[in-house]
Simulated scan of single mutants.
Amino acid sequence: MTIQDATSSIPSKRSSSALSMAPRKKVSSSDPLVFHGRHFGRTVFALCNYPSLLTNGILRLEQMEDTPLEDFPAEEQREHRVFEQLLDSYPGLLERLKGGSEEEILHVGELVGKGAAGARGDDTKTLKSAILDWISPKGEAIQPPLHRNSKIDRGFNHELTGSLLCPAGLDWNDPQTKENLRSGEMLVCGDQWPIFLYAHHIYDPEDPWSSLLRSRLLTCAYKHVFTSPSSVDKEPKATRSGNARLHGMNSVTIASIAYIATQVRFALSSSSVFSRTDTTTDSETFYHSLLDLLEDPEESQEVDELLTWWNRQIFPASSAARRPISANSALSKIRQRRIALKRAAVLDNIHS
């Protein structure tokens, strides 16, 4: 991304970190940025103060004329990467920001934030009910019953949701552990990941990456949000395009996995309102802790394998989901033969 000359509209003072949720604020405009914000929040960065993100980003562009991004603190580097992704995903946005007043920059941020918050609220509402269908024992009803429109009996208050939310490494079947979690004597921080993140809810302390973020519950929720509710157990039947198709999305992003995991965790909890001040669910810490792992360059091999797995589940027809050619297939044999013929031809040329 090129850095243009700074204009007088650049704010003179950076606000607090943008990578945390902003206070609720009503924005009435129907600007296309609201629609864009819905997808950006789900797939790039969900819990974000967008007015601060833009204000800080524009100011930082000016500073980067003399100071490379690598010299900024790690938190500011991450924030600026999110800022750049927003600019790259919406043509003309940088020009709009640099040509506008400080009030215009804040207004644009509020529009994007309205979209992100609206999408998050819609997903929270629909997943609250849908998740009960996915956690119900096959062919049985949940006992005691869980209400679709109330969450007060979820979380550690219920045997089923409690077993799914139990931090990996703890034994939900241990009576003392269960009692400590239910009473609140044992506080669960956002970076203590629940067992439902793991396939078949099995955690291996010797290999904590094994099956992480590959549970059926997560893929059900992902399909519900991004492809369509009807695609959870079968091919999509909805007449309207799902969110992924509406936004031209054909591969899974790291942030979208973290977003869905955060939504599922909240849906299983007893908390009724998704709030930054809710220390019980600690959703911001949970979301950030997943991103910290998935964005760590040291974990790139595991993350690449994870993304390939996810793309096979959600976008099986996309290039990102393509499997390597089967070793004993006809196609593999044809290609092996072609390679052998080329090698033979090269050797003949050398010896002739």
Rank of each mutant, 00 (worst) to 15 (best):
L61G: 01
G121P: 01
G113S: 08
S269N: 03
S318W: 12
V44L: 08
I202T: 05
Q301I: 15
V44I: 14
L47T: 03
R148Y: 02
N328L: 14
N328R: 14
D304L: 14
T285W: 01
N173A: 10
K25Y: 11
Q85L: 13
Y203I: 02
A320T: 13
L97S: 08
V188R: 09
H36I: 04
G99R: 12
I325H: 02
T177N: 10
R216A: 05
Y222L: 02
F286C: 06
T124D: 09
S89I: 06
Q313E: 13
E235R: 07
E159R: 06
D122K: 01
M249N: 09
E140N: 05
T161P: 02
A18W: 07
T227L: 13
S352M: 12
I3H: 07
S231Q: 03
A330Q: 05
Y50N: 07
P167T: 10
G109F: 06
M249Q: 15
S9G: 15
W310M: 06
V264H: 02
S28M: 06
P236T: 02
V225S: 06
S16A: 09
M64T: 05
T43P: 03
R42V: 03
V252I: 15
C48P: 06
I260H: 04
E284R: 11
I195W: 02
S210M: 06
P229M: 01
E302Y: 14
P229S: 05
K125S: 10
R182G: 13
H224A: 03
Q85H: 12
A141V: 09
I105W: 08
D153I: 00
A261S: 13
S163E: 11
G248V: 10
S270I: 00
I202K: 11
V232D: 00
G248W: 06
A321E: 11
S15H: 08
T161Q: 05
P23S: 11
S329A: 09
R154G: 10
E75Q: 13
N149P: 00
K26M: 08
S228H: 03
R154W: 01
S251Q: 15
H224Q: 14
A255V: 07
D174R: 04
P194V: 01
W310T: 04
V264N: 03
D296W: 06
P194S: 12
L54I: 15
S52C: 08
S215T: 02
K128Y: 00
S318Y: 08
A199H: 09
R154P: 07
N180W: 04
K237P: 00
N149L: 00
S289H: 12
L47S: 10
H158W: 03
I135E: 05
S230N: 07
F45H: 15
L127G: 03
V264G: 06
P194W: 03
R96G: 10
E84T: 12
V27G: 04
E298Y: 11
E62S: 15
L293A: 12
D174W: 04
S15M: 07
P23G: 03
D133F: 00
E110V: 00
T7H: 07
L111A: 10
L331S: 08
D292W: 07
E284C: 08
E284L: 13
T281N: 11
Q263D: 00
L197A: 01
D5R: 14
V225W: 00
P297Y: 06
A258E: 07
G139S: 04
L164S: 04
F274W: 15
H200M: 05
A344K: 14
I131T: 04
L212A: 12
L246M: 11
R240V: 09
N180P: 00
T2M: 09
